[in-house]
Nucleic acid binder design. Sequence first.
DNA 1: AAGCTATTGTGTTTGATTGCACAAATCTGG
DNA 2: CCAGATTTGTGCAATCAAACACAATAGCTT
Lengths: 209, 209
Amino acid sequence: MMNTTHKIIPDIVIGRLPVYLRALQHMLQEGRQVTSSQELGERLGISAAQIRKDLSQFGEFGKQGTGYNIEYLANQVREILKVDRVWDVAIVGAGDIGSALAGYSGFSQRGFRIAMMFDNNPAVIGQAQGDFVVRDMATLKDAIQAAGIKVAMIAVPAGFAQEVADKLVEAGIQAILNYAPVNLNVPPEVRVQHIDPSIHLQRMTYYLD
Amino acid sequence: MMNTTHKIIPDIVIGRLPVYLRALQHMLQEGRQVTSSQELGERLGISAAQIRKDLSQFGEFGKQGTGYNIEYLANQVREILKVDRVWDVAIVGAGDIGSALAGYSGFSQRGFRIAMMFDNNPAVIGQAQGDFVVRDMATLKDAIQAAGIKVAMIAVPAGFAQEVADKLVEAGIQAILNYAPVNLNVPPEVRVQHIDPSIHLQRMTYYLD
DNA sequence: AAGCTATTGTGTTTGATTGCACAAATCTGG
DNA sequence: CCAGATTTGTGCAATCAAACACAATAGCTT
């Protein structure tokens, strides 16, 4: 079932697919072979109907009476999300967060590979950080363009995040995962996701006594 | 305007308040005194009407013709979110992520204080980590209960996250920020938020070419 | 002080998302 | 090979969220 912008899929549905995929991969590691919308829903705290509706946007992946073949469904979802390939990722910022990200081994199973890392601090430029050497921010545009990198993570202090975002956009980056606690202004064709622990915590304190 | 479960506020509205608050605090640091729903909306990429509707759920904070006094509004939102106080937070896991969180200075301005840190690895128990010493997981329940801590962050490998969550719930934790890439099963009265960079990245790759 | 501009708070409308419920299909066990 | 139990995919209904649009109000300018 082609998906060349035929049908516009709600972004909220896209947002759930990675969660489904993670659960499916987890089940595979448990040695499971088949599952059902009901089981998946129970694990994730989502209604079975919603999972079926979400998946039905992209095709028919299950078998009535049986459920879904986990490996097959996982592969289909990977393809939908375009993580049936490996995306090279650039990290900007070699502080605590950047280093933790560079050292995180979990990306490779999920479709990503940290390919390069930048900072503007002369004290860290040239230093080894995980498998690679921290590069000078001044070389960012050329390096990213030469490598054809589309995805980046910002892990610099809040005050520098916007200018880094501007540079990334100029270099052709199309998806940014931003760890700095500020909103970023980017052109509409560039996707941004934010990770700010305080935001998540504050969203929960509302419900506390 | 009392808010003792009189009116049920949609969670999606609660989720936007921390974002508003962060922008307001940012404006304050710029020395600004007043703003409008329009300006706030432009900065955040949200419609002005939505911001007004969201805020109107809790009272009337603005002045027609003028807009909102930033400091006053920020204080009101802090009160709504219950971050007009300081919440002590426990971190479980003293690896890269836990350490980065322990060393992050941004929490204090946002209503949180890292109060203690746990790990089960004898090699790190007793070591200094930022301002405090890493404690043995075995002491978790007693320490958390004695300190009356309600909020925790999980920064352990995926395979241990569920058992850590169970221990935290048993210790009386009511809000969990989970950095492990697995779903957690907790009783309905406990709030959980997930941070998994791969999930955020996969949500964006769908839109890439 | 009158007229103009800006901006809020909200009733109403429009649109999006979720949940329901069931026919159709598949499997299982006797 | 049949009866019963499962489970999918989906049309329809219900719920929820966002956008619209405007009266009411405040400030500013002349």
